[in-house]
Design a protein around this nucleic acid. Sequence first.
DNA 1: GCTTTAAATTGAGTGATCGAATTTAATTGG
DNA 2: CCAATTAAATTCGATCACTCAATTTAAAGC
Lengths: 407, 407
Amino acid sequence: MTGYGPQGLALTPAGGSARDLIFERIRAAGQIARVDIARDLSISPATVTTLTADLMSRTLIEETADGPGAGGARGRPRVALRLRADAHVVAGLKLGDRGVTVVLLDFAGRQLAEATTPAGPIPCDAEAVIAAVETALDEGLAQAGLRRADLAFIGIGVPGFVATQTGIVHWSPALSVRDVPLARLLQQRLGRPVVIDNDANLLAMAELWFGVGRAMRDFIVVTIEQGVGMGIVLGNRLYRGTRGRGVEFGHMKVQPEGALCRCGQRGCLEAYVADYALLREAETALPHAPPASQDRLEKLFAEAKAGNLAARSIFHRAGRLFAIGLANIVNIFDPELVILSGEQMRYDYLYSDAVREGMEANSLDLGHPPVELRIHKWEDQLWAKGAAALALDRLSEQLVAGEMADA
Amino acid sequence: MTGYGPQGLALTPAGGSARDLIFERIRAAGQIARVDIARDLSISPATVTTLTADLMSRTLIEETADGPGAGGARGRPRVALRLRADAHVVAGLKLGDRGVTVVLLDFAGRQLAEATTPAGPIPCDAEAVIAAVETALDEGLAQAGLRRADLAFIGIGVPGFVATQTGIVHWSPALSVRDVPLARLLQQRLGRPVVIDNDANLLAMAELWFGVGRAMRDFIVVTIEQGVGMGIVLGNRLYRGTRGRGVEFGHMKVQPEGALCRCGQRGCLEAYVADYALLREAETALPHAPPASQDRLEKLFAEAKAGNLAARSIFHRAGRLFAIGLANIVNIFDPELVILSGEQMRYDYLYSDAVREGMEANSLDLGHPPVELRIHKWEDQLWAKGAAALALDRLSEQLVAGEMADA
DNA sequence: GCTTTAAATTGAGTGATCGAATTTAATTGG
DNA sequence: CCAATTAAATTCGATCACTCAATTTAAAGC
């Protein structure tokens, strides 16, 4: 008499109310008339009128003054709605090797300010990270003529193992200590709500909220710099793995008993394609170069292009294994699109046709066309925009909850 | 003016109504009183009364006659509800090498009949498969004293690449032809609605609906026999990949330029651990054995146990690569549990402590305890029960839709 | 038999949403 | 310039899902 079927609820308990759906629709469209909302969401025009009036009374949206938009209209002209730009401001920050980047976005998604402040040497302790964030944030606020109190939410991208729900950074190349409750510490210091996440996840968020990913249900973003990161979007949502930590693509094993990785294991993808892995090999093959530096990697690539066989083989192997790793991911998730993003993209050996071909050769041909592969030039503030997207996401949740509370 | 944020809906549009949730709760519990439903689902007792009355009028559930259950109760005794066993009957079938297995389940999840009928040589054409299904089904129906018309839904598990939504089998080791619209053909022949799915997915369904997976949100089922299959459950739902086909674990590359796989590529996991891969190697190392047969694999394993180094190395390599493949999956999904299931489980080299250790050694240590690994003895009808679970799942959807239609 | 207890039910009330009718703001044609 | 036309937006009454508070029901305890 124990029954059968999943014990957890297979059905989603609630789902978004019509008000939330309308809000999301307006945000996604930028400008949209009530009729179109009703049509898009299969909601009656009556409801749309009621709920948009409610959203307007909460000063979240407004009617636009500008012309009709839709061509030679006959009847009553449609009135477009949009988010009120002045409703809220959020900040997004990214902790990087070269410093801290910050962007400020208004509620309409427009960028109000962008700044990068150099950071000290990493790894450093929590206090130094907090101070660096504080400096960058204040710089951005100064540009926009705002104060900290004006921020509705702050999102921060951190490399490493980050648990978003708890706000704890379990390990990060930027931090000399483990298990830092960074979100809480920053919230205390900055006086505003803070949410943190793995930086690769935020790159996926950036594509989902501001990039090509907006129109895709399922896609993957891969980035290579110091390590190898991956963000997965399934069903228009960032998939964070079942325990809320990032997905670990860099430590997929692509070669049994292979090269030694920073993580202590062997054969990880990262141990073949990350900066340190390439440089490590270069040290063996080309001992004449100066000690490890960003510069050296470029030199190494130049040598490969010039025909140095040792250098060439380093990149060749990296590309081959990278293609295998990508193919494995594609076989498992079968996404609509794979985006390769990262500052190292200039290295044609990793983001090249050879990799694309290798990936396709290693992906199962199921009769449908191969996965679309796009290469996105790395923009410094894209990561920060992803962090801002996370902040906007949380802000929305908060607004919905608030609406429920006082409705 | 293009807005921002995902264009698809991030919020789930509707979600289950209270009636659906109550129905699911009763099914999951087997026996449950109205008060408990109200408490578990945070729904008012009044609603539970109303909606259970509705479900009873639809003859889906009934009150039980038996004693109170809860200890020395004082007040009005609670009346337990349960699904009406006689409401519906579903069939689940599995196409296997050894034949077709069928189970019949009543609406209370109890097994009414079970039968296996031997099948002809595979691969064969669609007509032969349909005939085999028909024979097995009628055998099961005869056992239970039922007719085809009594079946509410029929679920069928097919090895290979199966698109569930369209009901098309794109490729299967059981079929000599490609892209067979098997669900439609069977539906026409049997006169009852048919749903098909990849057999590994159905094994996951079986665990989710009837096994340990019932209490787990996220778990993975891996099975090895002819090929390597995997089913993934995320958030109490089977994850089928973004295009509705099964997840391709068997063709994960675990060795660059490695062994040749049936799929034509190199280094696939399957090319190291599937039956044919082991036998292929045995042919090289142990040319004295009789030609390929199930029997030979057992012999090979016996030799390995007896100390034959060549035989031993075959299983050793298979186990090592299998562990790597598992570790990669665990790194990506970070599930609560991994279930290893399959008839070949007797071969300790694949489902052994060595594999467990290998998997843990290759999984990233993130400070939490390693993933739980369970080995489930292969039961012939477990696959078929998974197919029945799929049928029950579809039946529920249909009932919900029907409820909406005539409510 | 009366009280106590807890489950189940009932009936009034609320909020979300819809359908049909109405109002509004434009265009077009006379 | 003024109807007629068109389509967007709004209004109003109705419905449905669900809740709350009060009531009924079926048992145990005294």
